[in-house]
Nucleic acid binder design. Structure first.
Lengths: 144, 144
DNA sequence: TTTGATGCAAAGACTTTGCATGCTT
DNA sequence: AAGCATGCAAAGTCTTTGCATCAAA
């Protein structure tokens, strides 16, 4: 469901982000979809409601979201894809370059197999802090 | 260890790839490193041994490898990274954009948690063929 | 008012491509 | 000899940036 404006404003305040109209509609759209849109796709969609918004602003805005952890960037072949960060979940990369979520139950079962102990050990031994974990299931590339 | 020329030629033949000098040195370099180099990085390294090789050829060559499954492309922020395909393993994305392999034992333990059953079910329900599985552990972005 | 965001266009980073030449088969 | 690969440069994508203007705090 689409987040309410008030909720979004509150979110922004919590993350020290200025509440601009552009940021609001970008976040509303991003959090309402599970299609992992590219910046360009978001721009096309939003351009209808706000013919003034610019592609550069979409990029800047997404960047602001990344900075405060409200969104995640998914590098992929071609343009990067974005998703609003909610629950941990599994991404499936399709042959045509889109990224879709695995069904929730499968996602959960897959993630359940990853023990926190291993992550902790990984952090300790590699000197990193794990802030996220993406299981990316890659499907067959163009076998056409 | 660096693969021997004969072995590489044999590999290429098995995959219906013409054996050119450029492809040979690209593959030798890629399979000898675990640094997941970008095309540009490979080009810089190879340019020493063969001052004639061009960046476009490195790209074309990597593309040929991808096509026959000898290499994998790892989209990442900035330039794509490549690795020669050997065993399944876990990638760790560092804050500065590099991609390093997790230690083998941790990698194995992590992958062991992912049941083939789940993958099979995922294929069945999503109508895809899973050809690879990347567990990408994302570390904290620039917390500096 | 002050500070930061927007929109535009231009620049930048990364990758692909057309074509003449050369090498593998 | 035939056909694909190479090297070069030019063209494409995708993303970032400089700057004047505008909106949020």
């Amino acid at each position: 469901m689409r987040a309410e404006p008030d909720h979004i404003r509150e979110l922004f305040r919590r993350h020290d982000l200025r509440c601009t109209h552009q940021r609001e509609i970008v976040y509303a759209e991003l959090s309402a979809t599970n299609s992992h849109p590219t910046a360009e796709e978001l721009y096309q969609t939003l351009h209808v409601q706000d013919p003034n918004i610019s592609l550069a602003t979409v990029y800047n805005t997404l960047d602001a979201f990344l900075g405060v952890g409200l969104a995640r960037r998914i590098p992929s072949s071609g343009a990067c894809r974005y998703d609003a960060i909610t629950e941990p979940h599994v991404h499936v990369t399709t042959p045509d370059g889109r990224v879709v979520d695995a069904p929730e139950d499968l996602s959960d079962r897959l993630l359940a197999g990853i023990s926190p102990d291993i992550i902790r050990e990984l952090e300790a031994r590699m000197g990193v802090t794990v802030s996220g974990l993406t299981v990316q299931v890659v499907t067959n590339p163009a076998t056409s």
